[in-house]
Amino acid sequence: MASSIRVRAQANGKTTEVQALIQHPMDSGFVKDSSGKLIPPHHIETVRFEHAGKLVLMANWGPAVSKDPYIKFAFEGGAKGDPLVVTWVDNLGKTDTLTAKIG
């Protein structure tokens, strides 16, 4: 199965710019489906970004983060070819991780 995580990480000299898109419903728990039943809450709580074994960003999300969430940030360092590990955990304990290469 294809990964739920897509990452674009670009090293430009001193810093690395990271953009990530995650496929996730981010259900708040207050939305009803077409049969009138509540769709249970199902949203990502944390996303960790690690470069060279070091945390470069910790995102904490509530249900107000949009479906198929997007995040953009930058950190000092990082070189072309370096691995960037992205891991999310949601409120149901589901998780996914991806090791992306910095371009």
């Binding site: 294809a2 897509r6 674009r8 953009q19 990530a20 898109l21 479906k67 198929d68 997007y70 953009k72």
Partner: peptide
């Protein structure tokens, strides 16, 4: 939004 458009997943799925 186009910096990382949400249709990217569908695009990949379609290509495959």
């Amino acid at each position: 939004i186009m910096q990382f458009p949400p249709y990217d997943f569908a695009l990949d799925e379609g290509k495959t």
